[in-house]
Each structure stands twice: as C-alpha cells, then as structure tokens.
Design a protein around this nucleic acid. Structure first.
Length: 759
RNA sequence: GGACUCGUAGCUCAACGGUAGAGCGCUUCGUUUACAUCGAAGAUGUUAGAGGUUCAAAUCCUCUCGAGUCCACCA
C-alpha cells in the first residue's frame, strides 16, 4: 500500500470492476427502486448534477443493507432547452429555424442530440454512480411516445383536453409560448403615460396597444366615474374618433393612476380575464412576430418598442398626453431563456383541465402517502397545487412529441392556416391552405415542407379533428397539429415508462424521487398527477429535494459571474470521493450546498486518512506472525480471560479501551442507521468523519498502538472489525477509497458491495 | 401584497429547549518507522437587535432591522 491514496490510479479500475461484476444491477433481496431524473440528453455535467449523488448514496446504502436496489437512468429530450441550444448553433451558420421544414429541423436536432448525448453518462461514471446504464430510457423512445399518446387519447376521451384561444406569454424572439413557470418577473422603471381618453385621463405603460382596446374600466364604487358606467364614450385617437364602452370591474385599483383603465383583452392577461367576464371583443393588434398588424394603421409592421416611441410621439403632437411619469417602477414579465420582454398574446392552444386531476394529488400529499424531505416542501407543493390552473401543453417548437391531433383539411381549407417551405427552399408565411393552393402548391408539397399549422378556435364552427397516432386512412385529407407537447407532459409520465411491465408489481410505487427543488411544481406534481390518473397509485413514496450547488461564497453559479465550477476538474484534481464528500460535509438538510475548493481538499484529506488507517492496520497485520482470521477472534472475544492471566497495568488499560471502543462504535452505528433512514445524509457523514478520524484514528489507535505492534491479535481483530464496518458505512458517500481498501484486505476480486451492513 | 428560508468564530456552515461545534484560515510546539493530504495544544462568539414564555432559549413566541428564494399583482 502506498503512503498516499491516489484516486486517479484506482477510480477507473474500480468502476470497471463494478461493471464487470454486474454490480450496477440489483442482486436478490427486497426491491428498492429509484428513477433517475433524466438530465438533458445533450447536457454536460455541471456542479448541480453532483447532487444526483444523493441517489447513489441511497442505492449503495440499501445494497449494503441487503436490498435489491435498482437505479434506472434516462435522458430527457428537453424540448425547449435543446431547440434553443440548436438554434444558437444554427445562428452561427447564419441560419434560423425558418430555413427548414419542421420535419427536417426535427431530424437535424435529433442528429445533433445523438452526437452530443452519452457524455453525461460517462461523467456520471466518473462520479461513481451505480446506475444500471443498460436500462437507460430516452424520452423519445418508441414506448414512451406510445404511453404519451395513450394518456393524451384517454384524457381527450374523458374530457380533460380542450383547445382554446388563450392568452399566453409569448416570446417573440424564441417563437413560443411559455408557461407561467417559465417566466421571470423583474422590476423595472418604465415611463407611465397619462393619456387623454375622451372624457377621461388614464395611465398606461403600453400606449402602443391602444388600438386593441375594447373597453375602458373603472371601479364600481368609484364616485368620480359612476355616471359613465355602462355608457359609451367618444374618444379622439390617433386613427380618428371612435366609441368605446365603459365597464365597471373590481380589478381596477381606484388609487392607481387616475382610476381608469383601458382594457386590451388580446394583449394583457388581466384584461383578457376582464374581457371574458364582460364578453368583450378580443382585438389583436400585435402579431406573433412581435410587430403591429394592419389594425394599427400606419404603425403596422413596427416592432412593439418602435411602435411605442412613434405612438407616443404622435400622441404628443396631437396633445393627447397629459403627463409622463418617468419614475414608475413595475414588474415586467420576461423570458427565462433569452431575458426579453414577453408579449401577452392570444393564440390557439391545447389545454389540460387540471381541476379534477389535481384533487387526488392534493389528497395524497395531505395524507402523507408521499412524504417530503425537507418537510417544508409539503407545504410548498400544496400551495402550488392549490393555485395550479389549466395547463397549456402546446409548444410551438419542432423538437418534441408532436401532439397527435389531425385536422380535417377537406372542406376546411380556409380555416386551417399553414406556413411551409416549398421545394426550392422558399419560405411561405402563415396563410390559409386555400390561399396556398390557389398559388398552385399541392397539399402534399405543403405537408412536405410544413412548418406550422395554426387552426384558430372558431367558436361556432370548429374544425373537425381526431386524436390519432397516424394519419387517418380514409379518402379525405388530414393534416397534423404542429404544436408539440410541453416537455413536462412527457417527462411527467416518467414513472410510467421506466419500469418493465412485470416490475410494476414489485417495484411500484418506487421508493424515492430525488430532484432539484426548482422543479417541484413543474415535474414532481405532474408525475404524481399522471401516476394517480393512469395507475391509480402514487409513483413514489418519498420525495427528497435538494437545492442548487453554489460556489464557496454561497453565490449561485452562473457563466456571467464566472464562478462556474466544473466537477470533472475537481475530480481530476482531488478524486471523486473528495468531490462527493464536499457536497455533503457540514450542511443542513436540504440547504444550499457551497462548493469550495477548500472543502474538496478537506475531503481529499479525509479519504487519505481512511486509506492510511487501513494501511496502518494492514502493515501491523502483515507484521504479526500469525495471520488469524479476525472473524474467529471476534467470536472468541474473550479479552477478560486472556487478560486475567497476566494482570498488569497495560492489559487492564487495553481491556478498558476495547470496552470503550465497542460501546462507542455500537452507538455510532445505531445513530448512523437512524440518520440514513431519515435522509439526514450530511449528519450521518459528519458522524462518520468525527468517529473515524478523531475517535478511531486519533484516540483508539493511539491508545492501542503498542498492542498492535506487539502483535496482539485480539486487539487487531477488534480494530479491523470496527474499521471494516465503518468502511461499509462510509461507502455510500465515498465509494472509491472504501472499495480500494476493502480490496487490499479481501483480495482484488472482492467488493465491499458484496458485503452486508448488519445492524 | 402573500408564503418560505436565513442572520452563530475571520470565511463557509453545523447544533434546533439543557456546559455553543466543525471545516478552512490563524498562533505555538512536534516528524527514524500509517498519514505533514499528519499529530498535540491554543486563540477567536452578550448566537443581528429588543421584548416575552420557561427552572433553563442560538433553539419556542412577538416585534424591529438586514439577506435571499418562490408565488401573485401591478392599467
């Protein structure tokens, strides 16, 4: 044994030996199952992934406790994220997604993902993860698509699916709608314009949307305006005079501005709601490309920002602006991806009605059928579930699972709008199929080069559609929806696609779902929802949440701050054990993990300490002439009878130290199990650290050093026993060094994973 | 506006009703034989502030101040 433990010399060999011995898959015993949260297929390891170690700890711990523990990995196609990355890649070549038919784009991204996937698994292996890689599942695998289709079809049949014009946060840059959870609110200072509006003055930050106003609202109790309620007023605007209705609505804050609000249902979420309440017309003036349309008269074609400037300028000229408050701070909703202002816009969208679907979820959480660690997340998820409203599942991206809805083209040529690329690669923007056909393109060619299908929701005359995996095989023409499912619609069904059919009897519900607390509402709540809906059973018994890994100072890691730590660098430098240890050493349950090189170094030292304790015992064992099996000594355990023969000071001392160590060790082990079983990993690890280093090495070994040197086999046996048991307890946290030492004592072909941790 | 988390040693954090701890850093001493990626000894704290409950409070309660996160609203 070298005087130093050198991770780089052993880690690869050890991992290979686990693979070769089949230790990545479970042996016999009671089932214990964890589904790995699928990382993005094309992702590369970042520090946050380090927390997947929690699951590795559980898998190894349970394996040592005699369970058939199984960790099933997977990869997520991560629709939005991946397409975003790919489009940046395209931009470098001076191209955009509008240069490709959606099918081509899909295939290109697929190729791109294929080329870039697999890396993260190699990196996970560097971390020592004991997952059954051969069982890896990709969220676009055939059986996943089928499951997703069946779920959608069932939901459709049972009335949980509907399509509606709906106001969504639309990112005109990313070209897609975002769920509320994908938006970010930022505080910003914007000018607040006080516009003369007929007999009123009203305040707005968005004068450019005034062309879409369909009412003016005041508070029902506002004495100032009571006499106008229900009447029409005449307003002098930029496009001439027009009449508009005055409505009363509680949403109006009398104290804000002048207490008068313009209602623009098409471009403001609140106004949209108000519009519904008062049956107002939705008048859309901004198109999904972020430019004003023909309803804005001379302003058509301008982007929102330019339009605002121009409108303000012209309003000033006409004397329609009373004043401008330049000191107004408000919250703006921006895209979490590109940071640009989101445009509230109405577009046709598929929705899932969640009111009934979420009820059993709330019940299961309330009744603690599913337990959360740390506990406070129970409260949080309940809060989220209670405010959760209908789920928009349409995404206007190509990289994803296409919604299996087919529209009946025959007879609806005028109602179905498409954009496509012709054979020559020319792009044709959104227009009705009829228009395109009139220009001489065949439906087949349109379908070949299809980019987007948009079927507005016609209140009276719906376009006939059916849910089907393939094009209906009849004489008429059909065209498939181009929207894809929200990523969470498929990954929410993860627990339903990861196990083999017969495993649902033994391994379902699975045991633990460990994941980032950020995606508790996105993912965890939806997995529970789908599982209860399809299987009538919870998908997992425990949810273990961890937070982001931050830098040494507790700052969130981000590229712009330049404080990103690459775990692989740390592993190369200090070893996987040191990296893993640093994620668990000295922190509170579910708290923030501060990853600093100092801490990793401290853990490197700890691994080395463990190695050297083993080395010391080993050298003494080699030195002792009689290599008696320590197991036998333990059975005899007769220190008293041995020592009574030679009654002297030193043996009395030995005897009492042995008693002491046994007592302390028993206590340690008991506490360890208790902590591990209640997901208090950091505390458990701290307990081991303290015992192994400061009690076992610094105290007991020092006390018993003389006995070891003089070849006292009983003492050696006792120390070995305590040491080995501690190796087993440490193994889930720092698998490599513990395995390396184990092999020194038990032979190259042995593995600590084949041992058992008895209590 | 609502909810949550957190203010403890120079730094990063533990302890969660019963003598305030760890890692890193710092001071002094110690290496012929397990480890200097080490050992021994030590310094550093009115536990943000104020009040309350209790025999006993860093810990429970209330308020104040400060930091952060999430949700909602904002014409």
């Amino acid at each position: 044994m070298d005087p130093k433990f050198t991770p780089s010399l052993v880690e690869e060999t050890i991992y290979k030996s686990w693979e070769e011995k089949g230790l990545l898959s479970p042996g016999t015993g009671r089932s214990y199952t964890i589904l790995m949260p699928p990382p993005n297929a094309n992702a590369s390891l970042h520090a946050g992934h380090g927390m997947y170690s929690v699951e590795d700890i559980l898998i190894r711990y349970k394996r040592l406790r005699g369970y058939a523990s199984l960790w099933i990995p997977g990869l997520d196609h991560a629709g939005f994220e991946t397409q975003y990355v790919y489009e940046k890649h395209l931009a470098k070549q001076g191209k955009s997604r509008f240069d490709f038919a959606r099918q081509t784009l899909y295939e290109n991204i697929h190729q791109f993902v294929k080329e870039n996937s697999g890396l993260i698994y190699e990196q996970f292996k560097r971390l020592g993860f004991l997952a059954d890689w051969r069982r890896s599942i990709f969220t676009l695998d055939e059986h996943v698509l089928e499951r997703v289709f069946r779920t959608f079809a069932k939901m459709e049949k049972e009335g949980y699916v509907y399509k509606d014009e709906y106001i969504v946060n639309y990112c005109t840059h990313c070209g897609t709608s975002l769920s509320e959870l994908e938006t970010v609110h930022i505080e910003r200072k914007d000018p607040l314009y006080y516009l003369k509006y007929g007999p009123f003055v009203l305040a707005t930050v968005r004068p450019e949307t005034k062309f879409g106003d369909t009412a003016v609202a005041v508070h029902p109790k506002d004495k100032r305006y009571k006499k106008w309620i229900g009447k029409e007023i005449e307003v002098e605007g930029l496009l001439g005079r027009f009449r508009i209705k005055v409505i009363a609505d509680e949403m109006v804050d009398m104290k804000f501005g002048t207490g008068v609000v313009k209602i623009t249902p098409a471009h403001d979420p609140n106004d949209f709601e108000a519009g519904k309440r008062h049956n107002l017309e939705i008048k859309r003036v901004i198109n999904i490309d972020g430019r004003l349309n023909e309803l804005a008269g001379p302003y058509a074609g301008l982007k929102v920002k330019q339009a605002r400037e121009k409108v303000v300028e012209d309003l000033k000229k006409k004397g329609l602006i009373e004043k401008i408050d330049t000191n107004y701070t408000h919250a703006v909703t921006v895209c979490y991806k590109c940071g640009r202002d989101l445009e509230p816009t109405v577009i046709p969208n598929w929705f899932i009605k969640v009111r009934d679907l979420k009820k059993p979820v709330i019940k299961a959480v309330e009744e603690e059928k599913i337990k959360f660690f740390p506990k406070r997340f129970k409260k949080q998820i309940l809060q989220w579930l209670n405010v959760m409203h209908d789920w928009p599942i349409s995404r206007q991206i190509a990289w994803g699972i296409r919604i299996p809805v087919w529209y009946h083209v025959t007879g609806n040529e005028q109602k179905i709008w498409v954009s496509f690329i012709n054979k020559k690669g020319q792009f044709f923007k959104l227009d009705s199929i009829k228009q395109h056909l009139n220009k001489g393109y065949t439906l087949n060619e349109i379908k070949q080069g299809l980019q987007q299908v948009t079927v507005p929701v016609y209140k009276q005359e719906q376009v006939e559609h059916i849910v089907s995996l393939k094009e209906p095989n009849d004489s008429s023409n059909w065209i498939q929806e181009t929207d894809t499912f929200d990523t969470w619609f498929s990954s929410g069904q993860w627990p339903l696609v990861t196990l083999k059919e017969k495993e649902y009897e033994t391994r379902f519900p699975t045991d633990v779902m460990g994941t980032l607390q950020d995606i508790l509402p996105f993912w965890v709540s939806r997995m529970i929802m789908f599982s209860l809906y399809i299987k009538k059973e919870i998908p997992f018994k425990y949810v273990c949440l961890w937070s982001l890994v931050a830098d040494a100072k507790g700052q969130k890691m981000s590229k712009s701050k330049g404080n990103v730590v690459n775990p692989i660098d740390l592993i190369n430098k200090f070893g996987a054990d040191a990296f893993r240890g640093s994620l668990f050493f000295g922190l509170s349950q579910g708290g923030k993990v501060n990853l600093g090189e100092d801490k990793v170094m401290a853990m490197r030292n700890f691994a080395n300490k463990i190695w050297n304790v083993g080395r010391f015992i080993y050298l003494n064992q080699e030195a002792s002439t009689d290599p008696v099996n320590p197991g036998q000594i333990k059975k005899q355990g007769q220190f008293k009878s041995v020592s009574t023969d030679s009654v002297n000071e030193s043996s009395k001392k030995t005897e009492s130290v042995i008693e002491e160590i046994r007592k302390e060790f028993r206590k340690e082990k008991k506490q360890y199990v208790k902590l591990m079983d209640s997901f208090k990993f950091s505390q458990a690890f701290g307990l081991l650290y303290e015992f192994v280093w400061h009690r076992f090495a610094d105290y007991y070994i020092e006390q018993l050093k003389e006995d070891m040197r003089s070849g006292n086999i009983e003492v050696l046996g006792e120390l070995k026993n305590v040491y080995f048991e501690n190796l087993k307890m440490l193994h889930p946290f720092i698998p490599f060094v513990t395995e390396a030492v184990w092999k020194v004592f038990h032979g190259e072909r042995s593995s600590i994973l084949n041992s058992e941790l008895r209590i």
